[in-house]
């Protein structure tokens, strides 16, 4: 009797996609550093402008927090992406092993000891399923982390709009504040675009694996 092996396909090259995502998000780190630097500059400007720029204090606090969060989340994405890559590679190897053993069993036909293949083949099938379950969990975590970065970035874009309004209320002295707000907006858009490309990559592989 032959063991039936599952034909469900997983993302064969998730292990490549995952490290590509990690590498893409690595580029977010300098952007986060830039946001952090912008926060410090804005803080200095706010101190100099005293009362008239007090509306910028919560904005600088937010920018600092945002930079820290982006750095932390990027680190988390890197760790999870590495696990996705490792698990995906193990799954591909286990599935290939299972397929080769199944091929051997099929070729053997009614060989005298064909039944002895059943146990290792069943073990391989269990291993493949277990790795697939683990991969699904890691992918869920990865998607959640990207969601979290996206939420922070959307908030940053809103804060940048508020900051520009605040800067406009300062009249001619608001030029430097406006420049900071534009910088924050640009940085946020950059991060958003990188996250979007990671999402596209992830979605393409998830679709292929279903």
């Amino acid at each position: 009797m032959e063991i039936t092996v599952s034909k469900q396909k997983t993302g064969d090259d998730f292990y490549v996609a995952a490290v590509t995502i990690a590498a893409t998000l690595d580029k977010v780190i300098p952007v986060a550093e830039n946001i952090s630097l912008g926060a410090m500059n804005t803080m200095a400007l706010t101190a100099r402008a005293e009362q008239s720029a007090r509306g910028f204090r919560p904005i600088t606090d937010f920018m600092q927090e945002l930079a820290n969060d982006v750095r932390r989340l990027t680190g988390d994405v890197n760790r999870v992406a590495l696990e996705v890559s490792r698990t995906s590679l193990s799954e591909v190897r286990a599935a290939q092993s299972r397929d080769k053993v199944a091929e051997g069993q099929k070729r053997a036909g009614k060989a005298e000891y064909a039944a002895s293949v059943r146990q290792p083949l069943a073990g391989l099938e269990r291993e493949v399923q277990s790795l697939r379950d683990r991969l699904r969990e890691y992918l869920y975590t990865l998607t959640s982390l990207l969601d979290e970065i996206d939420q922070r970035i959307l908030a940053a874009i809103s804060f940048a709009t508020v900051a520009r309004t605040e800067a406009a209320s300062l009249g001619t002295s608001g030029g430097q504040f406006d420049a900071m707000a534009v910088d924050l907006n640009n940085s946020a858009e950059q991060v958003r675009s990188m996250v979007a490309s990671c999402r596209t990559l992830l979605r393409a592989h998830q679709t292929a694996s279903n």
Partner: peptide, 19 residues
């Protein structure tokens, strides 16, 4: 090698059980 594994496995189990 890897490439001949299925053929080798199928040949072996004509002569001895895997265990």
């Amino acid at each position: 090698g890897i490439e001949i594994f299925p053929a080798m496995l199928s040949a072996v189990i004509h002569h001895t059980p895997l265990e």
